[in-house]
């Protein structure tokens, strides 16, 4: 009886200690990546290669989904705004939704599933096939050679992808709203320009996407580096990357929005 009760308590204690240890390990890993990122700027070719893999190859999915999201916003927004007789405000609605929220958030979610999972799988497999150990044997620091360039590539790519998403989305809203439905073109653009502020809306969106870039890439790298070196371990780590970084993006978005747009 006593044994059983303490057993339950021990289970809770074990989980708690494990959780705290993992958080500590993750933050140490993150700080280590930051401190050892000198080489990813001195040998910028390494980072450029990673920008190609995580940024350029995500371009198609980002642009296409941006276009579709913008078009859907145009259709849905028109449907609702038309009831209040203010369909000219369609441009404002599409632009504000995209630059403030959907641009950074949706592109971060896409980035997590397109590039984040790839980063985790790659590093997990490097570990499973003992490439990381081999690097350590050759006195090459795997964090500065493998992890840091990928981190900076993600941080650089994310805001650019989010900006492209928003720009293409506004174009999609324009296609549906002005070209297809026939909202007045002048009102569409002029009301948009009158309502969207560069600092308040666009710059805050860019700041958001930089934060999401840091979060998604750091989580993906940590999960890959931490993955058990087996096929099952790598697959679990890849799943965890997508789930954790998506949740992190949404939670961070709530916090950032609360700070940025309270006025």
């Amino acid at each position: 009886m006593f044994e059983r009760m303490t057993g339950g308590l021990r289970g809770i204690g074990h989980t708690a200690i494990d959780g705290v240890w993992r958080i500590g390990y993750a933050s140490r890993f993150f700080l280590l990546t930051l401190f050892k990122s000198g080489i990813s700027f001195r040998r910028f070719g390494l980072t450029i290669k990673e920008i190609y893999f995580s940024g350029v190859l995500s371009l198609i999915i980002i642009v296409v989904s941006g276009l579709f999201v913008g078009m859907v916003l145009g259709l849905q927004g028109y449907e609702t705004l038309q009831k209040y007789g203010s369909e000219q405000a369609l441009g404002v609605m599409v632009a504000l939704t995209l630059t403030r929220e959907l641009g950074p958030v949706v592109s971060a979610l896409l980035f997590a599933s397109r590039a984040g999972s790839a980063i985790t799988a790659e590093i997990g497999l490097m570990k499973a096939t003992e490439q990381i150990t081999a690097m350590e044997m050759m006195a090459i620091d795997p964090i500065s050679r493998v992890v840091a360039p990928r981190f900076w590539a993600g941080v650089i790519s994310m805001p650019l992808l989010a900006a492209m998403f928003s720009a293409v989305g506004v174009f999609g809203g324009y296609l549906v709203g002005v070209v297809m439905i026939g909202v007045d073109e002048g009102a569409f653009w002029s009301q948009m320009q009158a309502a969207v502020d560069f600092r308040q809306d666009i710059l805050n969106g860019i700041i958001k996407s930089v934060v999401f870039g840091v979060a998604v890439t750091a989580i993906a790298l940590f999960e890959g580096y931490d993955a058990p070196p087996t096929a099952e371990g790598v697959s679990h780590a890849t799943t965890r990357t997508v789930v954790t970084s998506s949740l992190a993006v949404l939670a961070l978005d709530l916090v950032l929005t609360a700070f940025m747009f309270r006025g």
Partner: peptide, 16 residues
Amino acid sequence: AGFAAILVLALKVGNL
């Protein structure tokens, strides 16, 4: 392309 997108957002969408 990324910087062009930011520029478009700033000039065409925003009030800059």
